[in-house]
């Protein structure tokens, strides 16, 4: 049904390793790594469940690996990015007290956080 350059016949012997990525299923180590990048802590059961579920989702997405997309421009957004200029006129800023009131912890009109350097 698909008459676009979908399956590339000259590449059929090697569906894997065309993008430099490991084509095996996502592993528990991979999931632990992205969880850490995402600042999420997973217990052992969650790690197993999420690994299984993410692998299923990525397996479904493998149908696009067979497409020959050479020369196709990526589309990151529906509209082209253009610089939007305006006159440099002062507007009404957000109310400082209202913004700070929504923060979990505030000191001297600033957001307060626990130590970010030093001992861990």
């Amino acid at each position: 049904m698909n008459d676009r350059p979908s399956e590339s016949p000259d590449n059929t012997e090697s569906p894997a390793n065309d993008g430099g990525a490991d084509q095996s299923r996502i592993s528990a180590d991979d999931v632990a790594k992205v969880a850490n990048l995402s600042r999420l802590t997973l217990d052992a059961d969650e790690l197993e469940l999420f690994t299984h579920q993410l692998a299923d989702i990525l397996d479904h997405a493998r149908d696009i690996e067979s497409l020959d997309l050479d020369g196709v421009e990526p589309m990151a957004r529906p509209l082209p990015l253009v610089n939007v200029f305006r006159a440099d006129e002062p507007g009404e800023p957000l109310d400082r007290a209202e913004v700070l009131a929504a923060a979990p912890s505030v000191e001297n009109d600033q957001f307060r956080v626990p130590p970010s350097l030093g001992e861990r």
Binding site: A21, Q23, L58, P74
Partner: peptide, 27 residues
Amino acid sequence: KRRIMLGAYALSAGYYDAFYGKALKVR
């Protein structure tokens, strides 16, 4: 959590071209 991790994976080094980059071309 699932989607944050899936997205971080699709964007991570070594997988960006195979997943996110291809998906943008499919768009």
